[in-house]
Design a protein around this nucleic acid. Structure first.
Lengths: 420, 420
DNA sequence: TTTGTTTGGTCGTTAGACGAACTAACTCTA
DNA sequence: TAGAGTTAGTTCGTCTAACGACCAAACAAA
């Protein structure tokens, strides 16, 4: 019998952020139930299709308990029985899968020039993926919120038409977002102190599901954790590669936002003292020596316009492919500077993986190796403390996907929809 | 009635590190009990003396439950009733306090030139504090382990004479310590791949209590969290100020060690590109531009010997007090570089507090203000995202104290001693 | 003394995990 | 084709431990 060891002391802890200073909350039976429901749900997510017996064997829960938990989850329409049975000796098992049809999790990513909306089902499979131009940089924050609300409403009605209940909506923003979902500073958007989560909830008039906002890098990290090929990784850092550079930090399996929610601002760490000026007022920030703005400023005549970012990057890629020495040299320098930033992360946080996202993905063939060398050479721990530098496979919508993942995470953490 | 709100979803999670890849463990009643015992224990620690009724009112636990939990904790000799009653209307309360007499938590800090051993009771009050010369830098690791074991044995027999049961022993080491308590690299000690926790447990021959090892900066952070004046802070970074500089990172109330346990190696982040060479083979590391070695190299003729660190620092302090412009200038430069390092931490992790420990404490009058200015000027978030730079009040034994705190933490997390 | 207030304990209830026994449904073997 | 063996899932009783209600004890104030 391969009963898994339960390693001693466990504590019941708040999964959602609790008020600071509040001690750990006591536990009662409903917490046990919620915990075990979440355990079963996550197990099925990772091992579907599987039988009740599989769950009992792997989690260590009693068979009877598993049956009860599964019945509860089926009541809540989170799981579904498939008629399928395995073809082995003994009584055939009724297999369980996540029920993909009744629910949707919605994520929206806003940026200077575009807006991405995605909806996924419980399994994480895409139900909808929109990308449209969005004057985030030029509109007032009020107009922007109205625009986001409009898109959100259309997504919700679409989901409702498909008979899906929306479990939640999260918005990803490139900027400082506090723990209440209020945008405190988004330089590229020109926002300051915009209560995005609150205003959006108001604009949606009691939507019946939680509305959250978070930093795009944080949500990118969540997307990698859930949808990326990083099985079992609990310490991961995601780097956005847009005009700005931000980091999403996952340690011990959860996003770490810092005291005010402003962690991950790697873009304004000084990498080259006395280097080129940054719009933040300082010099030599990672963003200006390893961000895309700097690269394009020097390769594209006439400077960068956010709306033209995509074709401009493509031009850089083409010139790199053609062997243009100027571009190759610029990319190599960028890679070196990026590697120095990654080295700082590796030394300070010792993650298992650092994932490069955004436009870094397209540039990876020319920057990944150099940046990784640089990181390894700067890490005190041998072999970088086991840190790998990899490229995201999620494409541009990573933050939007992560915003949807944020909703699924809260379900996985025990916020289950009520039974029918 | 001021019943505290329990905010919805809670999950039972492993408090001790679980095997990577292992999903969250399911919960049962014993977990609820362990959680609530720990809640009561912590409440009494923070609010002693207090009555059962106080506990029930503040934690939200039922009075009957509190009575049962308290009885259990008294059985385990963790709590004690004092005859004291409050002089108010109504029936007088029997007050509860932590029982300081039956247990001891032991922490040992080894360093290049000295060794510190402390023992504290459940309340965190010092029972013993030894500091002695220790040839950590020159002895072989085997000899060092034997020496540490000798000290540990003497501490344990001393505690046994006082009729105290030792709850655990933790050793703080300046270097990379993996999650199993094995020292992978300690340059200043000349150690590599020394299974300190294991070897020490062997040398103590089945001591009957857990033996752990961890990085000195990590444990310094724990000491600040428990014994420092940072009430309710959940995001804190501690910086050691020895020959090397290390960081201990606490996020969301717990130490974050990274994937392999090597987080916090801030000392070898490049602060001054092309700066002075570091013993690690690179240049311009924080350690050489903001560490004490660099300072002393330039103020004390003939270089630094670890054994003479203390008097040499004192000399620097005297010269600074006397207004020596050379020393003041060096200190200002050091403070600037240190502030750049702290700025990196503030941008990346957004802690509420960064605590300067070790010899930085003595130098604080000349470095704190400049370093904080530098940090604030480099933080993207307004006002440093709320980050404060402060000086430790714990003195040199911080890591040893933190090592003992590590033991108390494991008690607070539910690893209670068995009832008599 | 009486009345009110607070403490802390007892008792019965309840949620929910667990273990054992049982039934169901299949494959394999003789 | 008839067991025998094997695995799946359910039922039922047990047990742990939190909870709510009630109660006695012990004091202050009137």
């Amino acid at each position: 019998m391969m009963r898994p060891t339960r390693n001693g002391a466990q504590l019941i802890t708040n999964t959602q952020g609790s008020a600071p200073g509040t001690g750990p909350q006591p536990a009662d039976f409903t917490d046990v139930r919620a915990t075990n429901l979440a355990v079963v749900l996550r197990f099925v997510r990772e091992n579907a299709p599987c039988s009740r017996a599989d769950i009992a064997a792997s989690t260590g829960l009693n068979k009877a308990t598993v049956s009860s938990l599964v019945a509860d989850l089926i009541d809540r329409r989170l799981l579904r029985e498939t008629g399928l049975t395995e073809n082995r000796v003994g009584r055939p098992a009724t297999m369980l899968v996540l029920d993909g049809s009744p629910y949707a999790a919605v994520g929206i990513e806003v940026n200077v020039d575009y807006l991405t909306a995605v909806a996924v089902d419980l399994k994480g499979e895409a139900l909808l993926s929109w990308r449209r131009a969005f004057p985030g940089g030029s509109a007032s924050s009020g107009q922007a919120v109205a625009g986001i609300a409009g898109v959100a409403r259309r997504v919700v009605t679409r989901m409702t038409k498909e008979a899906r209940q929306v479990l939640g909506l999260t918005v990803a923003v490139p900027g400082l977002v506090d723990l209440n979902g209020s945008v405190r500073l988004a330089p590229n958007m020109g926002w300051r102190d915009v209560d995005l989560a609150g205003d959006l909830a108001k604009a949606l008039r009691d939507p019946g599901f939680p509305v959250l906002a978070d930093n795009d890098a944080n949500l990118g990290a969540l997307a990698e954790l859930r949808f990326g090929p990083h099985g079992g990784v609990r310490d991961l850092v995601y780097l956005t590669g847009e005009i700005g550079v931000g980091a999403g930090i996952v340690l011990d399996g959860r996003l770490r936002r810092g005291g005010a929610g402003f962690s991950g601002e790697i873009g304004h760490i000084e990498i080259v003292p006395g280097g080129p000026p940054c719009h933040c007022g300082r010099r030599g920030c990672l963003e200006v020596v390893a961000g895309l703005g700097a690269l394009l400023d020097r390769t594209v005549p006439g400077g960068v316009s956010p709306a033209e970012l995509e074709p401009e990057i493509d031009e850089v890629v083409q010139r790199a492919e053609a062997g243009d020495p100027v571009v190759l040299d610029l990319l190599d320098t960028l890679a070196g500077n990026l590697g120095r930033g990654v080295g700082i992360v590796a030394n300070l946080l010792n993650p298992e993986v650092v994932v490069l996202g955004g436009y870094y993905v397209k540039l990876a063939p020319w920057i990944l190796a150099r940046a990784e060398r640089e990181m390894l050479g700067r890490s005190l721990a041998p072999a970088g403390g086991g840190c790998r530098l990899v490229v995201s496979g999620l494409g541009y919508g990573a933050a939007a996907l992560g915003a949807a993942a944020r909703v699924l995470d809260s379900v996985d953490s025990g916020r289950l929809p009520a039974p029918a």
